[in-house]
Write a protein that binds this DNA or RNA. Structure first.
Lengths: 79, 79
DNA sequence: GAATCCTGATCACTATAGTCTGCAGTAAAA
DNA sequence: TTTTACTGCAGACTATAGTGATCAGGATTC
């Protein structure tokens, strides 16, 4: 478990979601994804496809590149 | 075929690869991916995972966010 | 005109992403 | 203390990503 924690996509996702006061279920609705899968992503158990990244970005109201930048920013703080 | 052409990940990939004078095979070596799969991506037949996006970005010598930005830039020009 | 480089393309296969259902546990509110 | 909201988690399943091998064909180059 936690195979991909060094990438911290999950941390970025959770941070962006929380900043918007969205529950996992609400974000699932907004992005058209499954609630349990968002949970999996936030725990870094799997890595999303580009399709999913775009769907989540739409749900969060940002661009995919901004999403990835947030991930890189968190990544940079850790290293 | 060409299911994902409206996203133009493939066009961005090909553009960035050509700018660096890399063959598909050379980029495959640099990124640790399969040559035929890069061909598939450039023709927009499949969408990459985040893992693959990061691998390609490394092979191209850029950040993943810059890669996505290039895609969004091309996307913007089309719309 | 054989040799090399490059890319499209197919097929069979393995690995992983993503869905769906349901249950458990915590916390806050009523 | 019941109800509600939220999330972790598991299992079975479907869909798609990604590999590896191989062939065909165009474009150099010798």
């Amino acid at each position: 478990m936690d195979y991909y924690s060094h990438l911290d996509f999950g941390k970025a996702l959770k941070k962006l979601r929380k900043e918007r006061n969205l529950s996992q279920e609400k974000l699932a609705d907004l992005s058209g994804l499954d609630r349990s899968y968002i949970s999996i992503l936030e725990r870094n158990l799997k890595l999303p496809s580009l399709y999913t990244i775009l769907a989540l970005a739409t749900g969060l109201g940002i661009k995919a590149s901004e999403f990835i930048m947030e991930m890189e920013k968190i990544q940079y703080l850790i290293e």
